[in-house]
Design a protein around this nucleic acid. Sequence first.
DNA 1: TGATTATAGTTGCTACTGACAACATATCAG
DNA 2: CTGATATGTTGTCAGTAGCAACTATAATCA
Lengths: 148, 148
Amino acid sequence: MPSSADRAEELYEAINQLIRVHQFRDRDCICHHDVSVAQCYALETLVKRGPLRLQALAAEMYLDKSTTSRVVDSLLRKKYVLKVTDPSDQRAIQLSLTPAGEELYKTIRQDLVSEETSMIKDLPPEIVDGALTLIRQLTVTARARLGS
Amino acid sequence: MPSSADRAEELYEAINQLIRVHQFRDRDCICHHDVSVAQCYALETLVKRGPLRLQALAAEMYLDKSTTSRVVDSLLRKKYVLKVTDPSDQRAIQLSLTPAGEELYKTIRQDLVSEETSMIKDLPPEIVDGALTLIRQLTVTARARLGS
DNA sequence: TGATTATAGTTGCTACTGACAACATATCAG
DNA sequence: CTGATATGTTGTCAGTAGCAACTATAATCA
């Protein structure tokens, strides 16, 4: 029976590999379309959280507001997001997706999910369900540590 | 019972989250030391594969040779790697770690693994073993698709 | 051998990622 | 009204990453 230290070591390796492979695959997949990875992530966040202020978007993405501002800028130039000044606070802006932005994210998302689909098509459902549970558990645990 | 499409969707979400959280954590952890993430990845590859030519390192890391050349350059400046011209082929260079490079990677690695350790310390061993198996399976499957 | 071709690495260029600091503007507290 | 605070933007710097052009060396073939 492997020790706890061994398990940690192996888990590190396993997750490392998974992350690397997925990163490359996602980048390939996303960049076939009109946006970069960070830009796509911003689209995704706006799809999930709805219209947001820049600061809120930055917080959601764990990015600096300056970085976020520039990412949003590029999406603005490509007409995938809309900037509206908040009437109740002239400093703030509300960011929302244009129809084109929503459409684009939907397309990319389909591509990404279809990668997953073909990945699991030969795995038994119980296995996949197990993986799901565990991966979520790991994420929760890791996120808890991130805050500290 | 969820459909296969639902599972793919959920798996996409779950892996996405895990990757995001880990990415941030690793970056934090690595950048406390003297190197960036890519630089650390290069160190890791050299630790695992031993001395390599630049092209081989690039292939191992799935990076362009120009990108790899620059990453290596920065490690060279920091004295973590050594460049030796291959006597049998004046064009080629052998890259190897300096003692400082090995030491640095060992330290970073300990930090990274210890993150994993504290992450799994409250999870039952069977759960962790299960996650390990599944994550590896997913990596293998994803990697197979990467090649195509 | 000598000319052509192929390979190894480097460098120029472009674009994206991301943080920190300084800044302009707007809001709020006293 | 004035100082403090909050929102976004811009400047700057470093790192990531690929493509194309280049140098130098090696290999091939005529």
